[in-house]
Amino acid sequence: MRKYILKRLGSGALVVLFSVLFNFVIIRLAPGDPTRLLAGKDNPSPETIAALRERFGLDKPLLEQFWIYFKQLLHGDFGYSYVSSLTVWELIRSRIVPTLLIAFTGAFLGLLIGTALGIIAARKKGSKFDMFMCSISYFFDSTPSFWLGLMMILLFASILKWFPTYGMYNVRQNYTGMAHVLDVAYHMVLPVTTLVLIDIPYYFRIARSSILQTMSEDFIMTLRATGMSEQKIFFKYVMRNAIIPTVTVFGITLAYMITGVAMIEIVFAWPGMGRLMLDSITKRDYPTLSAIYLLLSISVAVMTIVVDVVYAWIDPRIRIE
């Protein structure tokens, strides 16, 4: 088991290392020039551009640029944003918490509700509940998240006026302490509900089909023949066998969490990482983009390792070296 984990850690570190190089090159190969965007005017003077290029070090050869960047990274320094005067780290720090707040809450609730519904539907296969849930899951599955978000705003914010239309907190009232927490929670309701509604069908279908598949396995027949109660068979044997696909999907969702809810963030004007990333792309803010991609690749690598370890813990067949 330890060897298994060490092996996974090693390959994870390699993945991160490669993605640093890869992202650095790919971003700079993409068309568009940050200095042209920053210079602003329709026909910026070559002098301005040259000055900007020199200031950001873009006049140096690509390899040298990478070396400088890499040395900085090793010191934990992401550099300065081209666009704002803040350091990249300050930019990200202010955005990552709001993103994790809605993304994690949404993923977690989606996992709980979706899996619970899937379990109930699987146990009552063919019932009205099952058929209703199956058809409605296809509906939400084929719904684009931004459209659902807009509809939520239209219905619950514009027409019913139950919830705010946008933002993370009320900018007019400077709430502090508990009032601030409640205010944020109040603003979270619509974006999180949208995320949950989009997530539920995945967890629902995975839990349902995986449970049904496990229930049809031969060993369930053996256990039934021994006189074991259906309750015990289900909670002790079916669940553990059926949970692996759910772990995978939840792991992947967590891995992409820092940028995965960009659409929702934009629709609800949520000050999160997804919007920061899209802004950085349009403005060719290389340092910020590189940092976001680096965080993303670390997050994916770490979550993959976590999922692998959880797998091996659940299923002994995966532990084979």
Partner: peptide, 20 residues
């Protein structure tokens, strides 16, 4: 069940849960 009558199935590879 199992006290008075028991059964052995064909696919014994799957006769027990693979993760216990």
């Amino acid at each position: 069940r199992w006290m008075k009558m028991s059964v052995v199935f064909q696919k014994s590879m799957n006769a027990l849960s693979p993760v216990h």
